[in-house]
Design a binder for these strands. Sequence first.
RNA 1: GGCGACGUGGCCAAGUGGCAAGGCAAAGCUCUGCAAAAGCUUGAUCACCAGUUCGAAUCUGGUCGUCGCCUCCA
Length: 481
Amino acid sequence: MALRIFNVLGREKQDFVPLTEGFVNMYVCGPTVYDYSHIGHAKTYVSFDTIVRYMRSTGLNVLYVQNITDVGHLLDSGEDRILKKARQTQSKPMQIVETYTKAYFDAMDALGVQRPDISPRASGHIPEMFKMIEGLLSKGFAYEAEGSVYFDVTKDPDYGKLSNRRVSELEAGKREAVRGEKRNPEDFALWKRADPEHILRWDSPWGEGFPGWHIECSAMALKYLGPTFDIHGGGIDNMFPHNESEIAQSECHNDADFARYWMLVGSLTVDGVKMSKSLGNFTTVQDVLAKYQPGVIRYFVQSAHYSNPIDYSDDALDAAAKGWERLTNAVRLARQMRGAAPAGDDAGGFAARLAEARAQFGAAMDDDFNTPIAIASLQDLTREVNTLLNSGTTVSAAALDAILETYQATAGDVLGLLPKADAVNSGSAARESALIELLVDMRLQARKAKNWAESDRLRDELAKIGVILEDRADGTVWKVQ
RNA sequence: GGCGACGUGGCCAAGUGGCAAGGCAAAGCUCUGCAAAAGCUUGAUCACCAGUUCGAAUCUGGUCGUCGCCUCCA
């Protein structure tokens, strides 16, 4: 098995060969922190989280860098997103940045997204940007105009290679540049002169100003990953101009290839249109988490290939919830049966089936991280596991351990879909469990007496507080919803 | 207008030359005091047209439709 990745740069699936064997240097464009993260961000970062988890599970040593954009992201009006928010809420810009950076990590933590190894902030890398801009100026790829510095796209023959755009084909004059100081309409800012009301500003060799949006990623990728690294990821909506400009700046400045593999994830849509803050059709991660378990959201995201768009709706989430529960129910049952399982020295005839499942899972993930197929392989396995666990035959502890290990290595460690094994460490959790067991036992007595009314009342009352009972041949099991 | 993605059973979604995975929903059945959970059974010729081929959802050309980017967005 060998990992294959669809490289947007070149548009073909390629064998993944890291620059240094066993190591992967990876950069993913992070969020601009001026508002709460919505479910569209969740799709992007759950996707890359899954990708990183899988690579690590195969033994690759991944260095995952994902920036935080806290300056330089301008609106059409020329206004900084963060400054606008600060003005609206009468806050300091860095208050906005802190608030939403924290909110972003809180949301991602809740979704089981493992933290990037490095989360560099744009505002903390102004000197690195200066250096890069100066380098581009001295090499003639950039020019200064009235306190701003622009990248001259006509100086880079490769400009457009990621998004298949040709500057020469863009009808000059069709869209006039907002600022007449640019030489070409497609030139983009490396550094912008700050108007008096612009609070976020730094002294620079070109006067007071602030960095352009694209330069931060080039500067931080260079600093933490070097001139050439393995994978650059992000949302496909940033392919142009952002990613394209990153490539231009970096390759012209570094005299080296930038990222070797480009992975762009499809957008999340609502009723067929992209979820975005500007359209107002967004649902925040915290709102969705109020209704669905984190695992459900991950399952929803992973049920389509990362490069495809997915449409968000309650129906879609409900369906994902059912599919996710089917997997987790099997795991929960196995965990519960493990407690009273008789010792056994092997997994019996099931070992081969488990090995097959893991092989199928790995093959799917190796094929450009095909999570829908990976999940299908687990659903297939789950049917057989359920059959085994419900067959009435005795299943040995060794067999249950093997089953649980298989789920943990796939649905757990890679997909991040499994809840933690019920920990009854804390006093209150232990007390809660004991109380539930007590009620379950009371209901058992009622059932023995064929007092169905009382039996059903206990079950219904427990259901109201989120405790679901299931009567099995070998006893009643319960779960917390 | 340019660049790109896509159109597979009621819904979601894999498959990209050799008899169309998986999930959800629906119906019937088994189990069950009931319920839940679980299992079994039942369904598509792949937008349309024309080609290439022994053979196409899968390749080529065209038509229709949807979406993304081209201006801020993960």
